[in-house]
Design a protein around this nucleic acid. Sequence first.
DNA 1: CTGAAAGCGCTTACAG
DNA 2: CTGAAAGCGCTTACAG
Lengths: 338, 338
Amino acid sequence: MANIHDVARVAGVSISTVSYALSGKRPIGEKTRLRIDQAVRELDYMPNAAGRMLAGTRTRIFALTAPLRSDTYTPAHMAFVLAVATAARQYDYDVLLLTEDEATDGLRRVSSSRLVDGIIVLDVSINDERADLVRALGVPAALIGVPGNAEGLVCVDLDFEAAAALAVDRLVDAGHASLALLGHPQAVYERGSNFPTRFRDGFLRRASERGVDARFSMMEKDAPDVRSALFGVLDADPAPTGLVVHAEEGVHKVVLEAIAGRGLSVPRDLSVIAGVPTFDTSGFTPPLDSIPLIPADTCTRAVELAVRQLDGTVAPRVELVAPTYREHGSVAAPRRGS
Amino acid sequence: MANIHDVARVAGVSISTVSYALSGKRPIGEKTRLRIDQAVRELDYMPNAAGRMLAGTRTRIFALTAPLRSDTYTPAHMAFVLAVATAARQYDYDVLLLTEDEATDGLRRVSSSRLVDGIIVLDVSINDERADLVRALGVPAALIGVPGNAEGLVCVDLDFEAAAALAVDRLVDAGHASLALLGHPQAVYERGSNFPTRFRDGFLRRASERGVDARFSMMEKDAPDVRSALFGVLDADPAPTGLVVHAEEGVHKVVLEAIAGRGLSVPRDLSVIAGVPTFDTSGFTPPLDSIPLIPADTCTRAVELAVRQLDGTVAPRVELVAPTYREHGSVAAPRRGS
DNA sequence: CTGAAAGCGCTTACAG
DNA sequence: CTGAAAGCGCTTACAG
């Protein structure tokens, strides 16, 4: 395999000129550049990664730690992993995947050996040891999610409270005065990530601010429990006319089937909004309005902040990405007299 | 951050002695070793990855290409990705995750720049351009799955034909003379990986060899279609008494519910085996016998073969991993007179 | 059992 | 606009 000396020889220049020509870090004469380009093509030259890492100040690799918890929804998890990898490539970075059983040891290893320039931390939980470790190591990092103690850390996440508030506002603005939120299984609120809690709190707070009635109910993932949670909520007094669902894809379908099975029509009898789905709700029956959680949004921003930490142009911060609303026709004014 | 010179100075030895002490590539005197260990601990020394890569012959990184197709079942996909990463760590290798939109360019890039020592190719399809590229680049690689043209390549996969044959044998040995296989959606057989086809062919061939009646039916993933495929098969003449299901987790559940809904009991009225599931079937109602597809098995072997290619001790081959049978009580003798 | 030194393939001041 | 050279942090023959 050709190296930089080969290219220099063939092009009749010094290796430093080749290096500068390829990096663009200093101006190169027209003809010189052409000869170098020609030599590079002729030799099918590609700079050696190790040589580059050692001589330069960057490895152009980020580590990605993405633990798969028992309550993790795999498709969403995968979407985030891929979004990080894709975003990294846009900054000419590669992604090294750390395994779960090596969560903290792996972080230590790749940062101490300088294998990576920084770390992207996915699915951050409230008491996340990775957050403390990253802080202790002083390694450039961007967390996706917000740990309990975010001091000194760079975090990016969807603004889940604003997302929930947005759902409430839409429903209240449409005329609804009694709302309900169907959420994740109880275990999800007790451990793991804190976003379900933030979504729930945002929902209840905004409902209170808007002076409307609001209730919240958790559901397990199995169809019977989903139905009983749904019916429990629908049978309340006053009966909610606006429903927000924060759950996995399959659970949404069960909810919609159960609503239809009850003879209720969306949005005529009930307005429904999908909480912060990572999946597409436009193909549901009926299509659901949603406030989507878009992996690319937070991941791209996280990678960007990680890259900028390397120039020292980023201070610790918690950055919340503003939610957006997608209309698919599942929200309307409540029926008269309901 | 301390480097090897610091360690050598503190320990009062040369850097080569430090290097050899850490790699274990030559014998080190008792006291010398202790002094070096002490210095390493004192300085919290960890060898620089780039220096190691450049001086050594290995980067200790494998690239992993794992495209997410539209018909990919995400949890299985993720399980394979993690299994590769975990297996790689056992050989002191890290895994670099290639993105889909960079499938071939990424392979080219990381192998030409010598960023990686080899490539693990996941979810290989029949006409997989990655297989051809790997062959053309001559880069050490292990494919998980078997491409149409496996010449010159190292491939590892479950022996799907043997797995299907094993299912047939179990049922026939239990006394069943009429079998059915419920398979994936039609699209899966037409493109993508070839393992569904291999499983189907293995099923039909062995049934023929054993001289029993066998039919095969594909199903889409939605519950209505699953039920109609199931009923279509059960209503055939002669009615199958042994059923093999090769599908996603959710589809299995729909099948089992539909069987129960028909008033049939497993295994009394119908013996059922889960094809090559990547999920646990022991928690199903009822628990299902299975011939599991265990990501760790094939991935560990693939990583091992990739590592051994680097010593040149592996010739191109297609290695099929033998299937195993897991009993959970869903197979019994057919009812008399049925 | 140990050391001095070459060399891996780059980048980047330094010099012109 | 270009070049000669130092140096990044290791590994590994070579020598004793």
